[in-house]
Structure formats: C-alpha cells, structure tokens
Design a binder for these strands. Structure first.
Lengths: 248, 248
DNA sequence: CACGCACCTTGACGCAGATCAAGCCAGAAA
DNA sequence: TTTCTGGCTTGATCTGCGTCAAGGTGCGTG
C-alpha cells in the first residue's frame, strides 16, 4: 500500500503543471520517492493570507499555480512587498520554523507542501538538494538586489517600466525576450499590489500606466492585459543599461 | 614541506582577527586543512575597486578586516548600494565566475581569498560547508528584504534611524543591543555612502543627522563617531515595531 | 434590469526631499 | 604659519510624488 501510494504520488509530482524549480527539477527517482512520501497539497482563495508574519509553519512549499506575495507591514499600515511568488517558486526555509513575512495569495493558489521535519532530514542526507536550494536562494538574492536599485533610485515611470519588463520575462518564461517583437501578458497584480511592489501609491501607478499608454510604449486591453509593441522601447524607459534583457 | 606549510596556515586561519562566518566558523580540522591549502590574502586601499561589475574573478573571499560595499550604477550615475560587507562577510558565489556588482573598498580592506575551482570542489564534497553557505545566503536575503522596506516605504528620518540601528548592531556585534544603555561606534561610511545605502542624497543624510542630533536622539563626536544615549529612543524613530532589536 | 462593490482613473493641491549654491571644518602638505 | 583638499553642513528654491477627492468601469448578484 505504501508502495502504490508512492507510485501514484510520483506520477502526480511529475505532473505538477510547472515542475518545481526547487526540489523536483533535477531530482532522481530515489529522491523523488522520498519527496513524494512527505508531500501534500493545499489550496488558498484569492486574497487569503497563507501565513502571517511570525507564525509557526510546519511545512515548506512550492507554488504549483497562482500568485502569492511576501510582504512587510509597518504599524501605521505602510506596506512593502519583498517577494513575488509565481509558479514553481519556493516558500519557507530550512532550519527556521517561523516565517518573517506575511504570505498572501493574490490569485487562487495551489501549493505543493513538504512536511518540514522530514524535508530538513532529506536536505542533510541529499547535498544535491541543498545545493539546488542554495542556487535558488542566490537567484532570489540577485532579484532582491535588482529590486533595491528600483526602489532606491528609479523614478515612478522607470519603476513601472522595470516592473513590466520583469513580469514580461517571468510570465512568458523566456529569459531573453525577443526584443523588438510583440509581447503580451496578463498582469498578475492589482494596481495596489504593484504600488506595494514598487514603493509607490496606487494613484501614481495608475497615472504612469496611463502615461506609458499615451506614449504608445504599452497597449492596455482592459485593465489587466498588457501588450508591448516594441520591447526595446520599454527597456529604454527602465533606465537600465541598454545591453539586452540581463537580470543581474 | 607541504605539511609544515599547512600547519602554519592552519594557525593563521584560526588567527584571522574575526573568524570567517562563512567557512571557518564551524569547520573541523579536516575541512580547515583543505581550506588552508587553497587560501591566500589580498589587501586593498580605501577607495579602490576590488572588482568591477561584469568582471571575471577566480576566487571567492571572506572579509578579514575593513569595509567593502556592493553597488550598482546606472548610466547617468545614479548609484545604489546593495550590500555592505563588514568583517567575516562573504564575497562571491559558487558556480558563477562573473560578479554582478561593483565591489569597492570603503576603508583599507584585507580579504582572505579561496581559489574558486578547488573551493567549488570542496563544496560538492562537503555538504557541511554548502549548508553553512545556504544559511548565510538566507541571512543576507533577510537583510536585503529589511532593506527593501527601508528603501520603499520609510521617510528620510526613519531611514537614517534604521541605518544607525543596523550599524550599531553590526559594529557592536550584539544582536540584542542593551536597550536603554549607551551605545557608541564609528560610522564605517561617509555621508555619500550612507546616501547610496539609503536611496537619498548626501545633503538629506546630513540634514537628518543634524536633526536627530538637535533632538538629542544621537550625539556626534566629530563627524564619524556616534553615541546613542538611549537606544530605545532611536528605535522609536525607525518606524519599526517596538518589540526590540529583531532583524527580521 | 439595476444595484453594489471592487477596482481603476483623473484632477487639484501640498510637501518631503532633490537640486543648486555657498561656505565650514579638520587634517595634510608646504 | 598658510594653503589646499575632501568631506560635511546649511540655506533657498524647485519638483515629483503623495494626499485628498470625485468620478468611471465592469462584473457578479438579487
């Protein structure tokens, strides 16, 4: 029974719509087996808080579908997003049972969770996985540092342009967006969430979106769908060096 | 000869003024031996650039003494610091031979360097070390996220207060500064570097320092030495939750 | 259908912090 | 001693973005 259970789950895991970057992507059969044994799924409705800052959680997880955010809130209500979790991103960390930020479901979210205790044991046993986790964490650190430049030094217009180019890259999945060609995607965030991402107010976000639209840098179809007729033109607006879509 | 060499170096490593958080802190004799075999020292003068963004480097390193920064510069000269490296901090990363940011010596700096190739091999062989590196990276990520809140949502005054409390904690080495008691330390950064840290101009930094001084939150002895008569009063100014000196 | 609600847009106005400009201070060099 | 230089301070003015306020839009529900 345990055996069939595992078989079933294994198929299940490979079938996750997006393969989990963190743990499944390069795992071999043996590791997959162990992962499947400690795995379960949880779903959250849009707007629901997945974990509150300071809360204890007994699992780590990988985002299977939907969008979630990490954010910090000050006493007087000022809020700053510090992490944006899309498909296959990782939540939680080994060797720390409390979470430091509010984790919120922005759309309906499905998580593939791993029970913390056994996951940590797996980590110690399988250097492979802990090295993979290190790589991921370094990538996140890079993203955080790019974000810091945006927050600290860019104008509102540059912030919006940078945000759009980041989302375009992540949503379309291609690191090197064909510059010059049409790119289209749905914004995974409301204007307010964008504001929390960029350290702006939602009014300023709205104004700058309108302004970029007026200047034909973007085309809006409805409020959420964005078409970028010329990706290079967008990159011009970000204030970054012009040498292509390099993240770091 | 190799043997004596190693003996010598081993003593040397333990004797590093500050024990390297990254690699030596918890290493056993066997690991120390391997580390010592691939180790060398380099020094830089204040103001010197250690590595330029995009440059290839064949070593990773631990800061033994002095202060260095990671920073990004935009075409038009706007600069944002994204990392502050004090004693025992780690520079560089496994599996990436180019560096993404300018690394600059702010004071005279001594690095304890490890040749990249053998260091990476050591990482694969010793899960211990790669796990330690993961822990460190997660700490850095936390710091980056705290920093993002500062950059995105805090006022100039709050930024300065937050900066001072961070430096106080790092310079005095105590995670839990005795709130209420006197704390004194030397600023490791110029006003300009503080501005680059906080996403401000140097004039605003100067004005806010003066303002905090006028309000008796801090005492300045010369331009660099800061005395904080009441640490709680400083924490009040940061805008953070009042429950003590928690970093995350 | 209309009603409500969540989300978005746009306008008017004020202020925190940037910018421009002048001068101060302390240590080093002559 | 004076002079120079790099870092710091302070003042006056300007401006980008926040704040407050008033609608607009579109979807789900009775």
């Amino acid at each position: 029974m345990q055996h069939t259970d595992f078989r079933l789950e294994k198929v299940n895991c490979s079938a996750c719509p997006i393969r989990h970057r963190a743990v499944c992507a390069r795992a071999d059969d043996n590791e997959l087996e162990k992962l499947n044994a400690i795995k379960f799924y949880r779903s959250f409705k849009a707007g629901e808080t997945i974990v509150w800052a300071g809360e204890e959680v007994d699992f780590v997880a990988s985002v299977v579908g939907g969008v979630a955010t990490l954010s910090q809130t000050m006493e007087d209500g000022r809020r700053q997003m510090v992490g944006l979790l899309l498909g296959s991103d990782f939540i939680g960390r080994p060797n720390r049972e409390t979470v430091a930020y509010d984790v919120t479901a922005i759309s309906d979210v499905t998580l593939c969770c791993f029970r913390r205790k056994p996951f940590q044991e797996l980590l110690s046993d399988t250097p492979h996985i802990s090295q993979r986790l290190l790589e991921m964490t370094l990538d996140e650190l890079d993203a955080a540092r790019e974000w810091m430049l945006i927050l600290g030094r860019k104008t509102a217009r540059e912030k919006i342009a940078s945000f759009l180019s980041i989302i375009a890259r992540r949503e379309t999945g291609s690191d090197t967006v064909d510059t010059g060609s049409n790119v289209a995607f749905d914004l995974p965030l409301t204007r307010e969430a964008m504001a929390d991402y960029l350290g702006l107010t939602l009014e300023t976000v709205s104004r700058q979106m309108s302004s970029l639209k007026r200047d034909d840098v973007i085309v809006l179809e409805g409020k959420r769908r964005v078409v970028i007729p010329d990706f290079n033109a967008l990159l011009e607006e970000t204030g970054d060096d012009a040498d292509g879509g390099v993240l770091v």
